[in-house]
């Protein structure tokens, strides 16, 4: 086996790292616009979905521009559409951030909701991103109190939704997120509805 001097080793590793850094920077810079577009489109698709509009990544931006109006009031962002508002939600699941959007009509009844997550367990907590989970929220209410996720939820109650079996920690995170959202947006939204 060839004997390598210390000097060779140092230069070798320095060059290797520099080359790798160069490649990564180039790729990252060239792919960044595409990645950011994906994120933007995804957000718009989520908002459109809460008001019952299915969109493809191609037509999402047009549909969004047509139907959604972005608003900001006392530091809170929300989205106005014909028939109500969409509020954004942010919280923490078991492994990382979770978020979602919820479309509410003027009585604070849920028209539609979507949830997503960064790294919840696929098949367990990750199920919050499924349509099946989101559909449990339709018709529930965020008026007097926030919606809670519970085991064996009372289907007739407007404030209870079935939690995910095997995804208790994530479900708790969703409950907490709903509580926060309710607290933040309650005055704002009720205030503006009362004026109407």
């Amino acid at each position: 086996m060839r004997n390598f001097s210390n000097r060779y080793i140092f230069i070798y590793s320095a060059v290797l790292v520099a080359v790798v850094a160069l490649v990564l920077t180039a790729v990252s810079l060239s792919l960044k616009p595409l990645q950011q577009r994906n994120q933007r489109v995804e957000q718009k698709q989520m908002i459109l979905k809460t008001i019952g509009m299915t969109s493809t990544p191609d037509n999402a931006e047009d549909l969004y521009a047509k139907h959604i109006e972005e608003c900001e009031e006392s530091g809170l962002t929300y989205y106005r559409f014909d028939g109500g508002v969409v509020v954004p939600m942010h919280g923490n699941g078991l492994w990382g951030p979770i978020w979602g959007y919820m479309a509410l009509d003027s009585n604070m009844t849920v028209i539609g909701a979507v949830f997503d997550h960064k790294g919840e367990t696929p098949g367990l907590g990750g199920e919050i991103a499924s349509d099946q989970f989101a559909s449990r929220f339709v018709g529930k209410s965020m008026s007097k109190e926030p919606i809670r996720l519970k085991k064996n939820a009372d289907k007739s109650s407007p404030y209870e939704v079935d939690a995910i079996s095997g995804g208790t920690m994530t479900s708790n995170g969703v409950t907490k997120m709903l509580e926060e959202t309710h607290k933040q947006y309650y005055t704002l939204l009720f205030g503006c509805h009362d004026e109407k």
């Binding site: 490649v23 990564l24 790729v27 990252s28 792919l31 595409l34 990645q35 994906n38």
Partner: peptide, 10 residues
């Protein structure tokens, strides 16, 4: 990292 970036973009 390259695979990750490509997946994120495409």
């Amino acid at each position: 990292v390259l695979v990750d970036q490509v997946l994120k973009a495409y």
